[in-house]
């Protein structure tokens, strides 16, 4: 059910506004914040001003430290954040996975709790304590790469969990790989880079920044272009098709059968 509500949230008109706002900030504010760093290297925190970091520290102490510890070394309730970098913070907080509502098989996506400035401040603070992967450069997020290469890499590296059309899939013990439609390019990139939760890490030696760009290009291509055959039935494959033909196909045919054999008035 929670999954349904998450879906509903994303399709909620306000959610679109939030998405656009995040997009704008990422392209504008985010760029200004990290303008001095042009590549996705390991120490981007230098650009963040001390006041932003201080703001982040306060937010961290109030919202994150109870699980991750004031020194970020982690506690029984949450992992260490040493070395996770700004990208991980931006992904976890920016998609609403953090702060967690409750312990469960995996952190669920829910409405984003912080403004983009606050998220940026948190990211800057975490990165200032211990450097890690930075928020990716805008140039890699334009979905203007090679969709064919991206598609091939997606099938080899991602489709087994996320499904070939990015519709998501099941993992062990109640965990799942989420749907990828409607996810911001930044967040897709950051997820590959940092390996949130049980997702493996795809570092730049495995999938180069250009490879990641191509994967985003592919995902955005199938997201932004309608399925040529008509409604895709959730891209869930033969199970959805089978249910559809039994319920609606045979249903319609049986309705017609009853009409045909009913005696006319």
């Amino acid at each position: 059910m929670a999954r349904k509500s998450r879906k509903a949230n994303r399709r909620h008109p306000l959610a679109t506004v939030v998405l656009i706002a995040i997009g704008l900030v990422v392209t504008g504010g985010g760029y200004a914040l990290f303008s001095s760093t042009t590549t996705a290297s390991a120490d981007t925190n230098t650009a963040a001003s001390q006041s932003v970091i201080d703001e982040g520290e306060k937010l961290f102490a109030a919202n994150c430290a109870s699980c991750h510890g004031l020194d970020m070394q982690g506690t029984a309730d949450g992992p260490s954040l040493i070395g996770v970098g700004a990208a991980a913070v931006n992904f976890q907080v920016g998609t609403g996975r953090m702060p967690m509502a409750m312990q469960g098989p995996q952190a669920m996506q829910k409405p984003v709790q912080f403004t983009d400035e606050q998220t940026a401040a948190l990211a800057a603070y975490v990165a200032s304590i211990s450097p890690g992967p930075a928020i990716p450069d805008e140039s890699l997020l334009q979905a203007d790469g090679d969709a064919a290469n991206g598609g091939e890499l997606f099938r080899v590296n991602c489709a087994m969990c996320h499904n070939v059309a990015g519709a998501g899939g099941a993992l062990t013990e109640g965990k799942f790989a989420p749907e990828l439609t409607g996810v911001l390019a930044t967040h897709i990139y950051e997820a590959m880079l940092t390996g949130p939760q049980n997702m493996p890490v795809f570092n730049d030696d495995n999938l180069s920044p250009e490879d990641k760009r191509d994967i985003i290009t592919y995902l955005k291509y199938i997201e932004n272009n309608p399925s040529p055959g008509g409604n895709e039935l959730g891209s869930l494959g033969p199970v959805a098709e089978g249910l559809f033909v039994w319920i609606f196909g045979l249903g319609a045919v049986i309705g017609l059968m009853v009409w045909i054999t009913a005696k006319s008035n």
């Binding site: 598609g151 091939e152 099938r155 080899v156 489709a159 087994m160 969990c161 996320h162 499904n163 070939v164 059309a165 519709a167 998501g168 899939g169 099941a170 790989a177 199938i222 399925s227 040529p228 055959g229 008509g230 409604n231 895709e232 039935l233 891209s235 869930l236 494959g237 033969p238 199970v239 098709e241 089978g242 249910l243 559809f244 033909v245 039994w246």
Partner: peptide
């Protein structure tokens, strides 16, 4: 309604696989 979108599945290769790999009903 789309059925069997082979363009999403891509060509067969023994290494990749998709989540939700099922046969027809």
């Amino acid at each position: 309604f789309t059925i069997n979108p082979i363009w999403n599945y891509g060509p067969y290769d023994p290494s990749p696989v998709s989540a939700g790999t099922q046969p027809d009903w």
